[in-house]
């Protein structure tokens, strides 16, 4: 290698090193806040804020990967019910006594191949939405529909506005300032990169038949 080039540090390397350190610091902050316990609402709120900042950071990183066309899923065998339980435990810690958060296994298999980090990100966005809109209750559900595994986040709030539901199948989404649309955009991306033997995952948004509550469903192919 050319010695002059070797000593040259590119912008990309600086960014990467910086992000790496940010994640480390964020990781420490998160664990320190968690160690303070959940009983005090201000601490709980701080923990939730910390999680939201972390999610935004991960989203930015995914944007870089998308830009470089490097976003690929790394599916490994995971237990869907365990995965959901982990999400539930985290959600309960953030919600405290304000919301009831349940998880339910409607017949998911013992394992399924999916990218845990990406799937968690998609569901985390759905969960943030549910936190904003739920009245009392959020349900996390996993099960099988046809050949696909699904993860759903259901709340008892006002439901998705028509504008979101109507573009659900299309590519263009209204991205509002609070980031609602952005989360759905990512979730759709994440569904799409879960492929096996020519089939890929999908995202489904609908409102509860009883008239209240939104249901976000991520479908992942076998």
């Amino acid at each position: 290698m050319n010695p002059a080039r070797e000593n040259e540090i590119g912008l990309k390397d600086v960014l990467a090193a910086n992000l790496h350190e940010t994640k480390n610091l964020m990781g420490q902050l998160m664990l320190r806040l968690d160690a303070m316990g959940t009983s005090e609402p201000p601490v709980r709120e701080a923990r939730f804020l910390c999680q939201q900042i972390s999610d935004r950071m991960v989203q930015m990183l995914l944007l870089f990967e998308l830009q470089d066309e490097q976003l690929k899923s790394q599916p490994e065998a995971h237990n869907p019910a365990d995965f959901l339980l982990e999400l539930r435990e985290n959600a309960r810690a953030w919600a405290g006594a304000q919301l009831v958060i349940e998880s339910r296994d409607e017949g998911a298999p013992d394992y399924w191949y999916f990218d845990r980090a990406l799937t968690e990100m998609a569901l985390m966005n759905a969960l943030h939405n549910a936190f904003r809109h739920a009245r009392q209750r959020i349900e996390l559900v996993t099960g099988m529909r046809g050949d696909c595994l699904y993860f759903s986040v259901r709340d008892d709030g006002a439901g998705f506005p028509d504008s979101v539901l109507h573009v659900a199948g299309g590519h263009s989404l209204p991205i509002s300032r609070d980031g609602t649309g952005l989360g759905l955009y990512f979730a759709r991306m994440i569904a799409a990169v879960h492929t096996n033997q020519g089939r890929s995952g999908s995202l489904e948004l609908r409102n509860n038949e009883s008239g209240s509550g939104a249901e976000f469903t991520l479908l992942l192919p076998k």
Partner: peptide, 26 residues
């Protein structure tokens, strides 16, 4: 994730930073 997928020996599990105490406990 890719390292794990391509490694001859995988750890029992791995955690991506930043992670919460709840995640680690579960």
């Amino acid at each position: 994730e890719k390292v794990v997928l391509c490694a001859e020996m995988a750890p029992d599990d791995y955690l991506l930073k930043p992670f919460t105490a709840e995640t680690m406990r579960v």
